[in-house]
Each structure stands twice: as C-alpha cells, then as structure tokens.
C-alpha cells in the first residue's frame, strides 16, 4: 500500500516534508495504526503517539486524507491510496505526527472541569435519577483526543481564546450534571465573544468526533441557557 507521511525532525530537518512510503501489508481487518507501526518497525525514526489501540485513550489522533481520526480505529481497507497521514492541524508540530497538545489541554483546564458541590457530603451516594443521568450521555464519554477541536477553523484562528468544541462539551457535561452547583459560575466563565461565541455551528467537530459525540448540540444548549438567563 502507498502512504504519504508527514515527516519532521527538528534536529535534522529545516522544514517538514511529505515522505512516500510503500508498505507490503494485507489491509483486511487491519487498522491504520497497524500500518503505521509496521512502517515504524522498518524505519524507527517515525514518531507517533499510541497507547490503548482500541479507541478509548485518545493518543493517536492524526489527520488522514484530510480528516481527523484515531489511527487505531480507522479501518485500512476503507482509505484511498496514497494514504496521506499528517499531524492534527492547528497545533504546533513537535515531530513527525506528534503535536504539542498544550493549547488544547489549556482550554480544557480553563473550563474548570471538575464537579463542584459544596453541600455537606452524605455518607452514601448523592442521588441522581436515570433521566438526569441520561443528560450526561454524549458528554462524559469525551476522550480528549482533540480530533474535534483541531478540525474547527475558529480554534485554528483563536487557539488561545476560543475554548473549542472539546472544552465546551466538557463544560456542558458539568452544567448538565444535576449534582453540580456551579452552573452560574460556569456560564459566567463561558459568556464571552471569544471563549464561546467563536462557534458558528458549522459542525466540523461533529463530523470529526471518533466517538460519535455532538459538541455543536452541547454548545447550542449552553447558548440557550445563556439566553434563558438573560431574558
């Protein structure tokens, strides 16, 4: 199979380049990650992140033929050759397929992603109805792979000020949690032309999410809560 890989080693390369690679591999039943690791076994200078290899840890997000995907759950047979693999767009490249995720993590931290409940803790669990719990479905499953945020043009233009779809989805996860008492503060934190309203609802994030989540819908719900609070 034919691959075109983004290569860049800051110690030796003046600038990034695309490398053509032929790999002898039977694609049936294999994922893109299998192929990348097979290439690395031949040429160990190729660097990429990987861990769980089953789509739950979020390490191996890359841009494949123009789309952000997790290499470990992208079936090899469905990709058009030459398979072009690049690092996630919009983040600084450290080497080859590895980007500096800090701008992404920083936005995640900025939404204060932890449950706030200052009421005295009962000695047992806080109760939550199945209906209230169902509000978290589609929000808590995020694996922080950054596929969505780095497919969002608004994040490309304003990575330091726009929270991005992943961060906003996590903000919604806590706003939606019946046990969280900080909704007002969370809405205050987000109500900003840059932090929230850079989102124009173009839904690139929805298309990119490898877990099938819908950040745009969550952002819409945050906006309607803000409107409700105002009128």
């Amino acid at each position: 199979m034919k691959f075109r890989l983004h290569r860049y080693n800051p110690e030796t390369d003046a600038k990034p380049f695309m490398q053509d690679v032929e790999l002898d591999i039977d694609p049936a039943g294999k994922m893109l990650l299998d192929a990348l690791l097979a290439i690395k076994a031949q040429d160990e200078t190729l660097s990429l992140r990987r861990s769980c290899r089953e789509g739950v840890c979020g390490s191996d997000a890359v841009n494949v033929n123009g789309k952000n995907r997790l290499a470990c759950i992208t079936p090899l047979p469905e990709l058009k050759e030459p398979i072009e693999v690049r690092p996630l767009p919009g983040l600084p490249v450290i080497r080859d397929l590895i980007v500096d995720m800090e701008p992404f993590y920083k936005q995640y931290r900025s939404i204060k992603p932890w449950l706030v409940n200052d009421a005295p803790e009962p000695e047992v669990e806080r109760l939550q109805s199945p209906a209230d719990r169902a509000l978290l479905d589609g929000a808590y499953e995020c694996i922080l792979c950054a596929c969505c945020t780095t497919s969002c043009p608004s994040f490309w233009w304003n990575p330091d000020t726009f929270v991005g779809p992943a961060g906003l989805l996590q903000a919604y996860r806590f706003i939606a949690d019946s046990r969280d008492e900080a909704t007002a503060a969370r809405l205050d934190n987000l109500e900003d032309p840059y932090r929230l309203y850079r989102c124009r609802g173009i839904m690139s994030c929805v298309e990119a999410c490898p877990k099938g989540l819908n950040p745009t819908a969550a952002i819409g719900r945050i906006k309607s809560l803000l409107v409700k609070r105002r009128v």
Binding site: L115, E123, L127, P130
Partner: peptide, 20 residues
C-alpha cells in the same frame, strides 16, 4: 471509596431510585 468517587463526580449509571 466508591461513594467518594461518586462525590467527586464520577458519572455512575443509576437505578430507578437514583442510587448507583
């Protein structure tokens, strides 16, 4: 230990009576 995780925000699935 489990109740403590619940208090920290772990989104456990729930029974009809709201318990874990």
């Amino acid at each position: 230990a489990v109740y403590e995780l619940e208090h920290m925000g772990l989104p456990f699935s729930r029974l009809d009576n709201g318990k874990i």
